[in-house]
Write a protein that binds this DNA or RNA. Sequence first.
DNA 1: CGACAATACTTGACTAATCAACCAATGACC
DNA 2: GGTCATTGGTTGATTAGTCAAGTATTGTCG
Lengths: 169, 169
Amino acid sequence: MTSIQHELKQTRPFASKGEEAGVALMRTADLLRRHVAVVLAPFDITEQQYNVLRILRGAGEKGLPTLDIAERMIEETPGITRLIDRLEAKKLVTRERCNVDRRRVYCRITKSGFELVFALDQPVQEVADAALSGLKKRHLAELLSLLDRAREAMHTSLINLRAANASRR
Amino acid sequence: MTSIQHELKQTRPFASKGEEAGVALMRTADLLRRHVAVVLAPFDITEQQYNVLRILRGAGEKGLPTLDIAERMIEETPGITRLIDRLEAKKLVTRERCNVDRRRVYCRITKSGFELVFALDQPVQEVADAALSGLKKRHLAELLSLLDRAREAMHTSLINLRAANASRR
DNA sequence: CGACAATACTTGACTAATCAACCAATGACC
DNA sequence: GGTCATTGGTTGATTAGTCAAGTATTGTCG
């Protein structure tokens, strides 16, 4: 009986190693996500909102068009517009329509948004390191390389899957 | 520049290896989650609903009390009651109050719920294997062991974190 | 230059997740 | 046996996520 089976009190075995690794992967990520959420909660922002703020900090002065932000999110987010609506309401970002290409809306982080992300830098790093403290440096590097390798295959297969699914209608 | 930085078009470096591994972990898991979601979509159930059905299949005839299901979920779900409400509405599970301990509500999978999970076994396993096809057997085993090790530390630290946060009020 | 496709969002309608407050049943203790 | 904490679950209010359809702008090509 593997550790993940024990954790989830599973009675039946996994159909394949891939399925087992997949379940372990999603569960581990969820646990980590919740670590971060606990740190963010007192500041009244969600992980996704925090993710946007960090992206916009990285983008600098000129900001970034809405959909470019969506592309850079850790977790895919179709509701990017309303996500940014909420950040705008909190005055953590501003939006401005681009004059060169009037379809685009540039988003920029505000001063108070910047201060918020900055204040969160240390606690977030600390919680991430603490959460993964079970792994030594060498293990972290190994994990990273395995994950990179896994994602490579997934990136193309997800596109294919969706295309196949869409055409089925 | 690492692969995850390139993927997210990140301009600034990660503060620590832990943070970088954490981001890679959440992104990889999200990608996998979406693979599964695409497979489940035609059957009109979400990943969480599917997770509950699989748990109840494993539980067998006698079923499982509501909160016991919550404990076994891959992703933590405070909204377990309403999640099962929806499964009940679809006639995929039934609920019955326990006569021995009248606080408990036992949930059981129905015949059509069982048939649905059964029909999904193969496609779900296939998509998981396909998604992780970048990793050879040996790699999967390594990944699994690294994830197990990571979760061990997280399990206790999350409880502590939440307790510390709660008492701060 | 005019039709048509593509891009970059936005909106509406709906479903799902979250948190706190609640209620009922049980267990523990004097 | 009566109080009080605990357990197991539900509900209400709010926020967030999702999908499909819509609008405005731009780019393409005959």
